[in-house]
Simulated assay, not measured.
Amino acid sequence: MSRTAIIILGATSAIAQQYARLQAERGARLLLVGRDSERLAEIAADLTLRGAETVEIPDMDLTAPTDGYQAAWTSLASRLGERLDIVLLAYGALGHQDAAEADPAETVRLLNANMVSACAWLTAAANHLERQGHGTIAAIASVAGDRGRRSNYVYGAAKGGLALFMEGLTHRLAGTPVRVLTVKPGLVDTPMTDDMNKNGPLWATPAKVAADIDKAIARGRTVLYTPWFWRPIMLVIRCLPRVLFHRLRL
């Protein structure tokens, strides 16, 4: 029986690591892509001990522009063999809203890190899986993309754009064996959010989010709010009249 073959883009993220651990315990074949080679090596060693059949760790800056996304993707995928089962895109940058407002170049950096480069890699992955006739593509967006808010609208715009792209990709691949999952986490206790106040019941752990992603892929879901309560919360926020919404400091 062939083991599940998985590519994780942005494998050093806390959520990605937890997801990789779940798959390693099932003996998966993993390819972890990131730009921190030393950290990737540490993660790979841990996953091997947990039972992964193979762990490949090509180091690459996924946000760096290139003219050869499809060729680069083909080279990555070939390292796992002929069959690829799951692609998880997990990288991104929260940044600081005030810095983006002060410097248009920072706005461009955040849009590229969270949306533009991600959409390029997702296109390459979709082309590969469509030709293969099998597989699942999952990408981590954010509830921040559901409505623009003064506190993080640059990050939110990028993640909202990514979610809209994934919606279109879902439509494109409808009727094919390829599945597409858009993941919308809420507040997650990761190093990326270390400068935020983490008190309160809305915070989730990376392990919780990873487990939810794993279940959603297995069930063929197309959109996942994680934890579940973010779906009704964001529904309320999206439906607030503009006059009332503008009075809130969100």
Rank of each mutant, 00 (worst) to 15 (best):
M192Y: 02
A16H: 02
L84G: 00
A11N: 04
E106H: 12
R83C: 10
D194N: 02
K198S: 05
P104N: 13
D67E: 10
E82G: 06
E25P: 00
L32E: 03
A211K: 13
G156T: 01
E53P: 03
V178F: 14
E42H: 08
V236N: 13
K184R: 14
I15Y: 08
I6A: 01
R131L: 11
Y155T: 04
K159S: 05
C239N: 14
G168T: 00
L31H: 05
V236A: 15
L162V: 02
R131W: 10
V243S: 10
R21N: 07
D59M: 03
I217V: 09
A14N: 04
R3Q: 12
L122H: 09
M166I: 09
E106C: 13
R242S: 11
A207G: 10
K184P: 01
A102M: 11
A44D: 09
E101G: 01
A100Q: 12
A174S: 13
H171Y: 14
T74D: 07
P58L: 06
R247D: 03
D212F: 14
P241A: 02
P201E: 13
E53H: 14
A126K: 02
H246N: 15
F245V: 02
M1R: 05
T74G: 12
A93M: 12
H134P: 00
A28I: 02
V33K: 00
N199M: 07
G95D: 04
L202C: 04
L30R: 04
G160K: 04
Q70A: 10
T123K: 06
D98Q: 15
A72K: 01
V55H: 09
A72V: 00
D85R: 01
S37R: 09
T123N: 13
Y91W: 07
K198V: 02
A64R: 13
G68H: 15
A5C: 10
L80R: 05
I15A: 06
R242N: 13
V183R: 07
A158H: 03
L224K: 07
L62C: 07
G186M: 06
A204H: 08
